[in-house]
């Protein structure tokens, strides 16, 4: 597959995920389940932008690892904060 074709497909997938992902908003029957879904969609979109737009796959390892830590860490934090929000509130009680 040509590089430009890959860009077009990446954009298409990102747009589809954004539109489908937007449909997850407002469905709050199972908050944790929706949070996990939202985090997964976020993770896929971030990885696609990192690899195919930002070209991190061919970047020097330090840049790649730091950016992956940021972009992988965020969806993980979404899930963890949904699962352990009470614990986080207790740990940060002195800050608020």
């Amino acid at each position: 597959m040509s590089e430009t074709r890959k860009l077009d497909l990446t954009w298409l997938v990102l747009v589809l995920l954004s539109v489908v992902g937007a449909g997850l908003g407002g469905t709050a029957d199972d908050r944790f389940g929706v949070s996990v879904l939202v985090a997964l969609v976020m993770a896929v979109k971030l990885r696609l932008v990192c690899d195919n737009f930002l070209e991190l796959r061919t970047a020097t390892p330090r840049i790649r690892q730091l950016m992956y830590a940021f972009t992988h860490g965020m969806p993980l934090l979404v899930i963890l904060s949904s699962a352990f929000g009470g614990t986080l509130a207790r740990l940060t009680g002195a800050l608020v």
Partner: peptide
């Protein structure tokens, strides 16, 4: 690189405020 990073940050902000229940 800067523009894609700004995009990446929005892709985080968007679900946090507009989607997460």
């Amino acid at each position: 690189c800067y523009w894609h990073t700004t995009d990446i940050i929005w892709l985080m902000i968007f679900p946090l405020f507009y989607l997460l229940p």
